[in-house]
Simulated assay, not measured.
Amino acid sequence: MGLFRSSEILGIAESALEFALAASEEAHPNEYMGMLRGEDASNLGLDRDGTVLSEVLVVPGTKSNPVSAEFKPIHAPNDLSAAGSIHSHPNGVLRPSTADLGTFSRNHVHIIIGAPYGQEDWQAFDRDGEEIELPVLDIDPPEEEFFDFTQEDIDRELREEDNR
């Protein structure tokens, strides 16, 4: 069955889209580029089969200028939940270029964000470069535990040190 219960993309988390819009505006006049991480809808409390685009992954070493953005595939995160790509077009054109189409076959969905980077200044495409509807979902991605200890653990450790 694969990583996700269904490969159907149900939508993009509002927080992921907002991050990408802000990053695109900050990168202007250069292009912005990132990868989209997918999360099984059931892990987000949705009672549906499918995948939600939940986060934008920033790829180290991405090079960009006003007409392109690229990264070496070796620098891409080794992340099995990668489900798509997202990048900006500082000229505001919400259509894939020939170069964009050459990379679209690698994932399920691709989003282009255009200047001036507002809530309506983006369009999603399938791997063939055809426009698709992609709902924006008001969901909270699950919190990932970066550290495997809590504040209680720290306090306990400090008390033990004081008692030594």
Rank of each mutant, 00 (worst) to 15 (best):
D121W: 01
P116H: 09
L53N: 00
A22C: 09
A20C: 15
G114L: 03
G50L: 08
I111K: 06
E8S: 14
A20Y: 01
P73E: 15
E145G: 11
I9Y: 05
Y32N: 10
D47Q: 12
G92A: 00
P90V: 06
E26V: 07
D138V: 06
S42M: 02
R164E: 15
D128G: 08
G84I: 06
R106Y: 04
R156H: 10
A20M: 10
R95S: 05
D138E: 13
N65L: 00
Y32I: 05
L137D: 05
M35F: 13
P135S: 05
D140S: 08
D49R: 04
I111P: 09
H110R: 09
I132K: 05
A20Q: 04
A41C: 04
P142E: 14
V56R: 02
P141C: 06
D153G: 14
E145W: 05
G61N: 06
E131G: 08
S81K: 13
L36I: 14
L53T: 01
S64F: 10
L36K: 04
D79Y: 05
A69Q: 07
I12R: 11
E131P: 15
G11P: 15
L80Y: 04
L10N: 08
G34H: 10
S85P: 10
I12F: 09
Q151D: 07
G84T: 05
E152W: 03
P66F: 00
N78F: 15
L10D: 05
R5C: 15
A82V: 15
R159K: 12
S81G: 14
E31L: 00
V56S: 04
H89N: 10
D162G: 13
D49A: 06
D47L: 12
A20P: 06
P29I: 06
L10M: 07
L46N: 01
S42D: 09
